[in-house]
Design a protein around this nucleic acid. Sequence first.
DNA 1: GAATATTCTTAATCTAGATTAAGAAGCAAA
DNA 2: TTTGCTTCTTAATCTAGATTAAGAATATTC
Lengths: 187, 187
Amino acid sequence: MSLKEYIQRYINLSEEEYTLFLSYLETQSFAPGAKLLAYEERCQSRFYIKKGCVRMYGYTEKGKEQIYHFGIDNWWISNYESLLNDTPSHLVIEAIEPTEVYCLTSEKFEELCLKIPKIERLFRMIMERAYMAFQKRLEFLFSLSSEEQYRHFIEANAAFTQRVPQYMLASYLGVTPEFISKIRSKM
Amino acid sequence: MSLKEYIQRYINLSEEEYTLFLSYLETQSFAPGAKLLAYEERCQSRFYIKKGCVRMYGYTEKGKEQIYHFGIDNWWISNYESLLNDTPSHLVIEAIEPTEVYCLTSEKFEELCLKIPKIERLFRMIMERAYMAFQKRLEFLFSLSSEEQYRHFIEANAAFTQRVPQYMLASYLGVTPEFISKIRSKM
DNA sequence: GAATATTCTTAATCTAGATTAAGAAGCAAA
DNA sequence: TTTGCTTCTTAATCTAGATTAAGAATATTC
């Protein structure tokens, strides 16, 4: 799915408007391990992942990496705390696979919204969907055991499970790699 | 803080626009225990809490109530899964205190956005803030022990802690009331 | 103000999942 | 084809927080 198709699911843009939209975006490429957003950097952009896979992680009190999000093709990702408050980010966004993104800076975003007000609607809807997904994730987190969460995740994201190493999945689910190993040996 | 003041933090509305806005809202009152959204009901509205306190909860596999959210004065609350997909809600929104809300139905919301396009911007920003708060909550959930989460919560929401019974707080934090009791006896 | 229902506390026991430690696979470089 | 990384597995031990079961406060109702 192209960005154009993605957008059309929410709003209609004319050919000219879409071209204008694209002119506000900057294409960037990242090799595995490269950072879209570094630790302590101020997040200035919303990223749209054209192709690839990224993880967003922070650090626990004991200094261990904790993954909070993954992003794949056709997802928007950003650290909203840093973006909205203009504070240094305690979260890192890092490519796992070779990744190509559109980068929309806050500055460009504001200009774009003035030129094409419908863009506000687009992002209002995107944020509602993202919020919904979060609400759903919280439900699973609280109502399922770790084992059930794992089973549910790999079932709902079969393809995705192949793309990230198991220890990252463990981190995302909030369990240890050893525990995942234990569940898998039972299956 | 009035709704008008709340809105002005995000966008500017003229006196006429604000009056128009209000005309799309319906005021509703709920006694403690009354439901803003019932189990299996399709969620049709976004609720703005003028005054009061509500909880949003679902059920775990064992049939136990699990609280996912609280809402107090000047918060918007809704079940976005049910609202956006028009599906029966598995979450209940229920008043804890006598509560007065503005109810904005999806139908009225769409009309309103056509009349005053700035409203899209308002809700885009509200959703971003809500998403940010969620992102933050997930960070605490994964990086702090249950005890630390409790201590952090009552420190950050001292006033709020007085307003809900302890067993609801326990449910919201994902622990047992007995465990909260244990922590408190240490303090 | 006695009766009843709610909420909170204490303490003993239990368990899901963490921690620790070792080694086994897989994979890349040289 | 060996050396050195990175990832995954197995198994023993440990622990934060759950469960169970009483009882003690606190509200609420009649």
